[in-house]
């Protein structure tokens, strides 16, 4: 079985989350490995979340804002 990474993405409600929505409107295709968590600002992402995600088995974490 091929390696399927799991990626957690923290997206700011006002920019990158909106961009992810727009990617949908434009029907852009990308791999289904990412799980987006909506935050009100990327500054809200506590360092603890990143270590937690990696600790729980995420292969990558993105903070987008």
């Amino acid at each position: 079985m091929s390696f399927e990474p799991k990626i957690i993405a923290f997206c700011c409600n006002w920019c990158s989350y909106a961009a992810a929505d727009l990617a949908g409107t434009a029907r852009m295709q990308y791999p289904a490995n990412v799980r987006i968590i909506r935050v009100m600002c990327s500054g809200m992402v506590h360092p603890e979340f990143i270590t937690k995600a990696l600790g729980q088995g995420a292969d990558g974490v993105m903070v987008l804002g």
Binding site: A20, A23, I36
Partner: peptide, 11 residues
């Protein structure tokens, strides 16, 4: 969000 960030981008 299972449309914009799912069905539309992984059709």
């Amino acid at each position: 969000n299972i449309r914009n960030q799912n069905s539309w981008v992984h059709s």
